[in-house]
Amino acid sequence: MIQLHNVSVTYQQDVCALSGVSLMIPRGDFVFLTGASGAGKSTLLKLLYAEIAPSHGQIIIDNQNVSRLTRSELPYLRRTIGIVFQDFRLLPNRTVMENVAITLEVLGIGRKEIGERVSRILKQVGLEQRMQATPCRLSGGEQQRVALARALVNEPKILLADEPTGNLDDENKALILSILAEANCRGTTIIVASHDLRLVAASNKRAVTLERGEIREVHDEPR
């Protein structure tokens, strides 16, 4: 489903964020990208949702070369991908419900259906009582769950999560992981960038370790 062929990203001509990365992630896989800060985890995720373009190499998603997509075709790729940003990117002036609904609004779905689907996903992440709250009234863990709900509400083919458990307590970490696992069971391919090695080890999932922009090692999921 996702293939990276010899992908490199260079910033400002000499800063190399990724170098010669080749990776294949089959449909329905659950993969952790690990590595220290600056290893290239976030850059790799940004490449997948086409926020940045590779300096070299090819990225294939669903048999489609992402670099060759035109500007007007990009939104249709992004609609198949749910993204949980490291800084959440919740809109401060909108309620929890409106923040989650954005993903469905861009698809042109009617109000009634949006209401039903948003309620369902917020119930799933345990925020059904906070629908009308604005993000500033939520705790870090709650904000993280809103971001996760927004990424999952349209049942995407792929979910990319950048440090989704960073700064969370163990209870919230477990909750987030269980939500991701549920989505994975429903067929969503999940890629999580995390520097939390304890969490990665506990999850028993495939892990790709990055170091200075290169793949250092790949741990396959124990069968």
């Binding site: 949702y49 500007r71 007007s72 992004r78 809109l91 861009v106």
Partner: peptide
């Protein structure tokens, strides 16, 4: 605007 772009909104 940036968020809308990233969740797949057309221009």
């Amino acid at each position: 605007v940036e968020l809308l772009e990233l969740v797949g909104a057309t221009r």
